[in-house]
Design a binder for these strands. Structure first.
Lengths: 281, 281
DNA sequence: TAAATAGTGTCTCTAAGACAATATCTC
DNA sequence: GAGATATTGTCTTAGAGACACTATTTA
């Protein structure tokens, strides 16, 4: 007969303990990858417009086969959630981002038809060069989709519209803002619009977080290559926040965080811009 | 013989799919509960000093028996993580906080001696009245500990000291700041000082988050009862941030967020203060 | 040379901080 | 009346926004 727990040593307790006797959920990691993509130029001397985009992959297997979904997959037993996020992103999109930020768990009991699966989601950000790198790789069914998130209506609903221009794909989903805690907005999916699982909810939440952080300057640098122009950096913040800024004021505020280099842009149909790098902290 | 997955319908696929064939971790929820506690008054007319405190329970069973730990427990299959956090807090401390905020997952492979267990942690905040309510309930081995978090040394280490004055308990743990992402600091445990598992890490992370948010005014109201004085509110922010503010300036900034009531404090040994409530958004 | 962006200088306005002064209660 | 906090008013200063103006490149 087994000793009562109170009389065991910790070593004896652990010897007899088997976690797998208890029911427990499965764990996946999903990654919302943001990048700023350029759109078609209007004429030779005007800089290109930019859009905030996220990366989706087309699901090849069940469930939700053929639908667009966030990259991600099941946690393995020998890796942390963060390691899992890096691995899945590498395997499914060949991206290796510098920035990976946990954005919390999605744990609705019925969020996946396969059973009880909790998604621990991450936000990653890739720079312009990596945005273009993916575009050239057509092996994987991974595509950038521009994100357009409407204002919330009186009842809290908002439209999340994802577009891939080259392939003429439009995903129109609808979410409802349910509550805000610590400045973080939570949403429910009203109409997935063809996105797999509850990924519309995850994307809407991630979008809110990125918007919130975009007022801090630090996050902006994650969207940029090592060398960048101040107007490029400004355009990223404008894109993230959906606003327009005056160059003079933006420069003044950003200057303490960057260092000038000897290099500059050329051939842009207008005055060249000096290239800057992020100042080391 | 079983059909290949490609030829199945989604319904057929789901019929044959069994999540539990795959290894998967166990999931717990741990809650870092913050409250502002009063300390002994110095004389009849001086207001009491305040300290930021967290709630710990003494573990009754293995592992880490007898050590102090965060309230929490295993996720059940029919509840979300947030529901689990509310349930565990109610069961273990009888508290029902209004504020519960996800603060992410802790997923180091070896963080629990029982095996692979991921902690999804939450921050909760309770107001003065609930802080006192617990003090009177000695059924559970739950106690408030004041939190003192030192400045980081050059090598990133900092001391996290938890104290319960009545029982003369001091828990001195040491953590090292490893990285910062999106303004969120991550720590490693250097010396747990007697705290169970990696709870020193979780507490240090939670403390950083609360400090960060304490500059926004919204969070302050979670620490307050329905009616409060402006100087009480000010003292909470001063306690959270470890700073001193000038009353005139604090009032000016907070006024748009509160409404005056007809009530006021009495018998405090000095001029009475009007009671305010949070203004509805 | 026109059209576009790059970059500088300066004015105004707002909000935060410092601080002086007055008000009101209890012992 | 002394000692504490409550409350109001005002001066100064730092920073954000607006905007005018100059500089530099390429088709």
């Amino acid at each position: 007969m087994q000793k009562a727990e109170q009389n065991m040593t910790e070593a004896e307790f652990l010897q007899n303990y088997d976690l797998t006797r208890y029911p427990r959920p499965s764990i996946t990691v999903d990654i919302v990858t943001f990048g700023v993509t350029g759109e078609a130029e209007r004429n030779y001397r005007q800089d290109e417009k930019k859009s905030l985009s996220i990366l989706l992959i087309k699901r090849g297997g069940h469930p939700c086969r053929g639908m667009w979904a966030l990259p991600g997959g099941f946690l393995q037993m020998d890796e942390t959630l963060e390691e899992c996020a890096y691995r899945e992103l590498r395997e499914e999109t060949d991206l290796r981002p510098d920035t990976l930020m946990p954005m919390g768990a999605f744990s609705q009991v019925d969020r996946d038809p396969r059973g009880r699966i909790i998604s621990n989601s991450y936000i990653s950000i890739v720079d312009e060069e990596n945005v273009r790198a993916l575009a050239g790789d057509d092996a994987a069914e991974a595509k950038w989709f521009t994100v357009q998130f409407s204002e919330e209506a009186d009842d809290g609903t908002a439209e999340l519209i994802l577009r891939n221009a080259e392939s003429d794909i439009v995903i129109a989903s609808k979410v409802r803002h349910s509550k805000t805690q610590f400045g973080r907005k939570e949403y429910e999916v009203v109409d997935s619009g063809g996105l797999a699982f509850d990924h519309a909810k995850i994307i809407a939440t991630a979008f809110g977080i990125v918007r919130k952080y975009a007022t801090d300057f630090d996050i902006l640098f994650d969207f940029m290559p090592a060398l960048f122009t101040l107007s490029g950096l400004q355009k990223v913040q404008e894109t993230l926040l959906g606003i327009t800024l005056l160059p003079a004021n933006f420069r003044r505020k950003i200057m303490p965080l960057v260092e000038e280099t000897d290099l500059s842009t050329h051939g842009a149909g207008h005055r060249p811009a000096k290239l800057y790098r992020q100042k080391a902290v």
